[in-house]
């Protein structure tokens, strides 16, 4: 990696912190994001109406879910598939107005799937608080065959759509929630460096 190099389109994630002026808080998390949820509730239990949606698809996540429920003493929407969680989120949005603050914690792929649902409802992703948790695996969009590859951990990845060796670039599309992947041996076919696992 080049020193000092960073690119504007690449999202920077923070730590979830309550927005004091919000009239309603909606917190959406998955997997390891459960820990961000717990950290958030350690700051305080807000006075304003609160909706919590959590995707728990493994035993560790279920543990987080149980703890969260104990702490907040309010019903938490828990789902075990992403599709169901996103549907529950859409249903929740029907009762949200301006002044609602959204918080998302989870992997990058999850964060941007949630952001896409929120965007359809008119929420600008700049106003959504995001915390990156769990795997650093990237979603990779192949610019050649337009396949989106999930959970890419290596800097060079064989596209599941077209079999090309793609180099994972830093260019990120917020609309697609994915990094751009370009064929690495376009100039000298077959010249492919060894892949390194840099997004564990």
């Amino acid at each position: 990696m080049e020193k000092g190099y960073s690119i504007k389109s690449k999202p920077i994630y923070g730590t979830l912190v309550w927005q004091d002026h919000a009239m309603h808080h909606v917190v959406i998390a998955e997997g390891e994001g459960g820990k961000a949820l717990l950290k958030l509730f350690q700051q305080k239990l807000p006075r304003e109406p609160l909706s919590v949606l959590y995707l728990a698809a493994d035993p560790q996540a279920e543990k987080y879910a149980t703890t969260v429920q104990k702490i907040i003493n309010e019903p938490v929407t828990i789902k075990d598939s992403q599709a169901e969680l996103l549907n529950a989120l859409k249903a929740t949005l029907d009762s949200c107005y301006m002044g609602t603050q959204f918080y998302v914690a989870g992997t990058e792929g999850f964060i941007w799937k949630v952001a896409a649902v929120l965007r359809d409802a008119g929420v600008d992703d700049k106003n959504v608080f995001k915390e990156l948790c769990g795997s650093l695996g990237r979603r990779l969009y192949c610019v050649h065959c337009k396949t989106t590859n999930e959970n890419v951990h290596h800097n060079i990845h064989v596209c599941t759509g077209c079999g090309r060796h793609l180099i994972v670039r830093e260019h990120f599309s917020r609309l697609m929630g994915a990094y751009m992947g370009f064929m690495i041996d376009a100039e000298v076919p077959g010249e492919i460096p060894a892949a390194e696992e840099i997004y564990p």
């Binding site: 927005q19 002026h21 309603h24 301006m98 002044g99 600008d124 700049k126 106003n127």
Partner: peptide, 10 residues
Amino acid sequence: AKQMGWPDNA
């Protein structure tokens, strides 16, 4: 607007 949680960019 700020006190009612409206984001600045709206």
